[in-house]
């Protein structure tokens, strides 16, 4: 299991409380298995996006990855949360770099992805924002 610490933000007085609620679950990009242009695509296990299983796609920001489950799951297991389990990211947003945060609600910026770029990421992901 990919571990993480939330001390970084909590010691500094920043809430880790989840925001966004049900709205965050509606944005799933184009709903297709492949990561297509303009989508922000997370991948559970980094395989350079050669396969399309265990991915989660977005058009926009998401303040809480702990209410998102991995899509395109071959065996029907849809109980895995995206939060803190991502192994790769492909930013196909045409306008923005995407910042991935260690905590929900855009707390503690962790890694920032330029446009048209994909690579493995650390599992510390709880929210993401475009042009942050």
């Amino acid at each position: 299991m990919k571990a993480r610490s939330i001390m970084a933000a909590t010691l500094v007085g920043i809430a880790a409380a989840a925001l966004g609620g049900t709205a965050a679950q509606a944005d799933k990009g184009d709903g297709k298995a492949a990561c297509n242009r303009a989508e922000i695509c997370f991948d559970f296990a980094w395989d350079d996006f050669m396969t399309s299983s265990f991915q989660r796609h977005f058009w926009y920001n998401d303040a809480d990855h702990s209410n998102d489950i991995w899509g395109n799951v071959p065996d029907g297991n849809t109980s895995l949360w995206v939060a803190n389990t991502a192994g790769g990211l492909w930013n196909r947003d045409t306008e923005c770099a995407v910042t991935v945060y260690d905590l929900s609600s855009y707390r503690t910026p962790y890694t920032t992805f330029p446009r048209d770029f994909r690579s493995p990421i650390s599992a510390r992901n709880n929210s993401h924002k475009r042009c942050a």
């Binding site: 909590t10 010691l11 880790a16 966004g20 609620g21 944005d27 184009d30 926009y60 920001n61």
Partner: peptide, 27 residues
Amino acid sequence: KSPNPALFDVPVGTDAAAGLDFWEPKR
């Protein structure tokens, strides 16, 4: 273990951009 303000049961504000998540292009 982890000094988290959420442990105080204080209601927090909402994300102003949350409504954007409902947009879907017609394709």
